[in-house]
Amino acid sequence: MPSAPGSRSIGLRSTVYRLLALVCLSAGTLGLLLPLLPTTPFVLLALWAASRGAPELAETLRDHPRHGPLLRGWEQHRAIPRRARILAVAMLAFSALTLWIGGIRGEVLIALLVLFAGIGTWVWTRPDPSERA
């Protein structure tokens, strides 16, 4: 029996979202080990993609004992706990210091410092979930 028009694209779209979720989750996991690779943005992106293509994976992420509360707080209130904000900004600073000590070219270092400062400012200005409840 032939498939309904568009059903193949729905299956393809779901597969692409699933693949994106798994790639982002893998990158986030690597970020736990590599100081220059962020974890949180990849896990948030994995949740976003999984919500669209792999609902069971999205639920698994939301129910995770350590990361679930952070992800639910982000989804519900666009909020980041104070401890996570401090850690994120500290890791950005550590990454910048590592790049500087590593002797990265001056213009590249400046561009990355501007990027890190922007990201750090954005993260730091997010509300705490307890303030939004």
Rank of each mutant, 00 (worst) to 15 (best):
A84H: 04
W74V: 00
E59A: 14
S95F: 13
L12G: 05
I86S: 12
G103Y: 06
L87S: 13
L97V: 08
R78D: 07
F42I: 01
L45I: 04
L19M: 14
S7G: 08
P35T: 01
E59Q: 14
G118V: 06
T98C: 07
G11M: 07
E59H: 08
A54V: 00
S95H: 02
V114P: 02
H67W: 05
V89K: 14
A54R: 00
S95N: 09
A96Q: 12
P65K: 01
R82G: 04
A58D: 02
V114Y: 08
L19N: 12
L19W: 09
R105P: 05
A84V: 14
S14C: 06
D128N: 11
E75D: 13
L112R: 12
G103R: 09
L12Q: 07
V123R: 11
L44E: 09
R72S: 04
V123N: 08
S130E: 06
R126K: 12
P38I: 01
S130L: 10
W48Q: 13
L47S: 06
E107S: 05
A54N: 10
F94D: 15
A79T: 04
L30S: 10
A111W: 01
S9K: 07
E56T: 03
Y17G: 01
L70M: 03
R8Q: 02
A54C: 08
L71N: 04
I110A: 02
S7V: 08
G68I: 00
P129C: 12
G73L: 02
R8Y: 05
L109N: 01
R8K: 15
W124T: 03
R82H: 09
R78W: 13
R132V: 15
L20D: 11
S51H: 02
A96W: 06
I80S: 03
G11W: 10
V16R: 08
G120W: 04
R66K: 03
T98F: 15
C24Y: 03
S7K: 13
